[in-house]
C-alpha cells in the first residue's frame, strides 16, 4: 500500500526537515509554498503608522509518496525536525495513494517509487543481513 504524507510547517524549518529526511533515506519530495492559518490566527506587522494584521501566514507544504511501512518513521522525523513548540508549527496529513506511474519508464506502484539507497532498499538490505 502506498501513502502520501502532506506536511505543512514553518518555512524556516524546511532545511532541518529536509536534512532529517535525507538521513533516514527519503530521496524524493516536493515542496510548495502555501499561506494559511490555524487556531493562532494571523500575525501583526509594522506599517507606516502603527500595525496591521495579516491573516494568512507563509508556510511550506512538503509532499512525500512512500510505502506504508515507512510512514510512522517519516512522520516522527518530520514532526521532530519541524517542531518549535510554539503555536503555528503546522500539521501532517496522511492519505492513501491509488497508483503511482513514473513518466520516464512507465513503471508503476512500488517500482515507480524505488531509488537506490532509499528508505525501502535500506530496509531490505538490513533485513537480508538479519536473515
Amino acid at each position: 500500500m502506498t501513502k502520501k504524507i502532506e506536511a505543512i510547517f514553518r518555512e524556516e524549518k524546511l532545511d532541518d526537515v529536509k536534512k532529517a529526511l535525507y538521513s533516514i533515506g527519503i530521496v524524493g519530495m516536493n515542496v510548495t509554498e502555501v499561506r494559511g492559518h490555524g487556531r493562532q490566527g494571523g500575525i501583526t506587522l509594522s506599517g507606516r503608522t502603527g500595525t496591521y494584521q495579516v491573516d494568512f501566514l507563509p508556510r511550506v507544504q512538503l509532499n512525500i509518496i512512500l510505502s506504508d511501512h515507512n510512514v510512522e518513521k517519516t512522520i516522527n522525523t518530520i514532526q521532530q525536525a519541524a517542531q518549535t513548540g510554539n503555536i503555528g508549527d503546522g500539521l501532517i496529513f496522511v492519505y492513501p495513494v491509488d497508483e503511482v506511474i513514473r513518466i520516464r519508464t512507465g513503471e508503476r506502484g512500488h517500482d515507480a517509487l524505488a531509488y537506490e539507497g532509499d528508505i525501502d532498499t535500506r530496509q531490505e538490505v538490513a533485513m537480508a543481513g538479519v536473515a
Partner: peptide, 16 residues
Amino acid sequence: FLSWRDNKPSVLGIVT
C-alpha cells in the same frame, strides 16, 4: 522612533 513605539521600527515608516 514613532513607529517603534507601536511595534518594531518599520522600514516603510522610515522611508516615508
